[in-house]
Design a protein around this nucleic acid. Sequence first.
DNA 1: TCTCGACTCCCTTCACTCTC
DNA 2: GAGAGTGAAGGGAGTCGAGA
Length: 249
Amino acid sequence: RRPMTLGMLACQVRAGEIKPDQSVDKWKLFRALCEAKPLLGIGDRALAVLNALLTFYPKNELAQGNGLIVFPSNIQLSLRTHGMAEQTVRRHLAALVEAGLLVRKDSPNGKRYVRRDRAGEVDEAFGFSLAPLLARAEEIEQLAAAVMAERLHVQRLRERITLCRRDIAKLIEAAVEEEAPGDWQGLYSEFRDLIEGLPRSPTTAQLELLLDELTALRTDILNSLETRIKSTKQRGNADYIERHIQNSK
DNA sequence: TCTCGACTCCCTTCACTCTC
DNA sequence: GAGAGTGAAGGGAGTCGAGA
C-alpha cells in the first residue's frame, strides 16, 4: 500500500553499509538534524516525532550492536509528542521515511509489532529502523555545519546592510542641511525603494544584491559630496587670491 | 486448537486553521 | 484567496491473547 521510491531504496541500501563498530551519540546527532533540517526537507513537527522515536531507543549510542529497530505504537508516539494527533504522527513518520532518515521494517502485513520468544525476549521487531541515521551521521553533521555557516554569513550581510543604510541616511541628511546642490530627494527615494523592495524573508542572494546596490549608492553620494567639497575649497582659494591681489594694489 | 474481541496498523475524506 | 498543515471520523485488515 505504501509506495517504495528509488530514494527509499537507496536509503535502505546505504543503511546496510554500516560498519560493525560504527556508533554515534543519538542526541548529538539529533541536535545536528535540528540545524540541518532546511537542507533535509523536514520541519519542526517531524523532528518532534523523530525525537519521540529516539526516546524509545534504549541506549544513548546508536550502534548496530544495540539493534537499530524501534517499535512504539502510534499512541505512545502521540503521548511523547505532547498529544500530537496520531494521524499527524503518521504523516510525519512518512515524511521522515521520505527524507531518508528512517526505514520501515515492515511486518508481512505492514504493521508494527514485536514477536517474542518463549523466554519473553524480543525475537523479531517490526517497526522503524534508525540505521539511516547512523549511516548518514557524517553527512548530517556536514549539512548542519553548512547551515550554521550560511546563518553566520547572512548575519554578517545584515550587519553590513544596517551600517550602509545608516551611512546613506546620515550623508543625505547632512547634504540637505548644508544645502549642497544635487537631487537629494531623488537619491533618498532610490534609497527607500531599495530598502522597501527587500522581501520579508529575503534569500542570501537578495541580501547580497541589496548590499551591492547600497554600497554603490553610498559611493555615488560620497563622490558627489567630495566633488562639492573640492569645488568649495577651490572657490575659497580663488576668492582669497583675488582679494589678496586687490589689497596689494 | 479454535474462536472472537480487543488492539493496532494503514488509508481516505473532509473540514478547519494558519500563513503567505 | 490559495495552499499547506492539522485533526477527526470511518473503514478494511492483521495480530495477539484469553477463554472455551
